[in-house]
Design a protein around this nucleic acid. Structure first.
Lengths: 209, 209
DNA sequence: ACATTTTTGGCACTTGATGCCAAAAAAGTC
DNA sequence: GACTTTTTTGGCATCAAGTGCCAAAAATGT
């Protein structure tokens, strides 16, 4: 449930994010100190760290929300569906998210920052890995539910999830500031069709283990 | 060529690595300061930073060498071979590397440190991404050579390389301190067989683009 | 109006990382 | 072997990220 405090907290976070992004864009990520961000957001530095665990988190924290949506989407897929297809649909929330041109524009800027800074990029990779782990968790759980016991090797599930995510990354790769989401979506479909594993792709986890 | 200076530099790096790892294991990664490492290695802190760009680099720097070997191995594969199989053999140097039980043991400790520390893990992920990028580069170049022009979409190559690496990661996943490399190798073969893309896996880049 | 809980701000402190410069060491030259 | 040149090193100063701590302030509940 969304209590009042949570809402306020969320608003403050959004405010910091906003003002920080402006600073990052105008004078560069590294050149912007947390003191400056805090000052611009009207709070002390100490308080900044109560809303974001680190400087990178201001920009990469959003990925956790995306991951949340993906996890939910994956959980909602029917267990009889092949894991590969379920994963494809787990990515739908992200596609839908970027159907909003405002978000697209905003995140294109964020993306540029992330790509050009080591620390940010590292933070992004960590979030991405977290997401992978969570998706693996969902599919493992699904396999267990369908099977009554822990699957012998969840390495296959790991590889499957990893491969699907790589398709997602590749389909979004090298998009400019203004791009057509539908093109990206088509690319994703095409890639996941071509990359569909010969054996594992058809695994529904209903009868695989 | 391996000049005298390079050799000496390499030796110093190895020395630092050695003494640092001991400290990390005995008192934890974060609890070990660079001052302590430098002191134990018999040099000033300033000098430490002339051998390693960062604290993480002491442990994760090795991955670049592994990547070097993989890149060379991939370059040496015949262009007529399917990209998927070429990638499988690009991983051979790593498998061979771990046939030495001493390295296996040593890196198992390193691995534990990396897994339990955010900064280290992030650094590792960055190196891994670099490796991916380099392998993509090799296959793109191969495609261009075979085709005379830039391939229309190297997204497929990205996805292919990413998927292969995910198989590698999955096959090494959750190995304890003492493990059988041959088991891991068999797992890798099995995974890459199951994960072989229905279409893309057979792409040799001789006639695909 | 009062008591309780949460949030905030400022301070001190640690530590990783970088620039700068002069001393030391190594390499090359005659 | 003495000299010059180049590289390496150490110490200093500096900056910025992140954390613990505590008292003041604000919000919340009664």
């Amino acid at each position: 449930m969304m209590t009042l405090r949570d809402r306020k907290r969320h608003a403050v976070r959004a405010g910091i994010s906003e003002v920080a992004q402006e600073l990052f864009v105008s004078k560069g990520y590294e050149a912007t100190t947390i003191d400056e961000i805090a000052a611009a957001a009207g709070m002390s530095r100490r308080t900044f760290f109560r809303y974001f665990a680190s400087k990178e988190d201001v920009l990469t924290g959003r990925f956790e929300l995306v991951a949340d949506d993906m996890v939910v989407a994956l959980e909602e897929r029917r267990a009889s569906e092949s894991a590969w297809d379920s994963l494809r649909h787990a990515f739908d929330p992200l596609i839908n998210y970027y159907r909003d041109p405002h978000r697209r524009e905003r995140d294109a800027v964020t993306w540029l920052l992330i790509e050009t800074n080591q620390d940010l990029f590292a933070s992004y990779l960590v979030k991405l890995d977290d997401m992978k782990e969570r998706l693996v968790g969902v599919l493992v759980e699904r396999a267990v539910k369908n099977n009554g016991h822990e699957p012998i090797d969840n390495h296959l599930i790991r590889a499957l999830v990893g491969a699907a995510i790589e398709c997602l990354l590749a389909s979004f790769h090298a998009v400019g500031p203004e791009y057509d989401v539908e093109v990206v979506a088509a690319r994703l479909d095409d890639l996941m069709r071509k990359m569909r594993p010969g054996v594992a792709g058809e695994v529904s986890f209903t009868e695989a283990f």
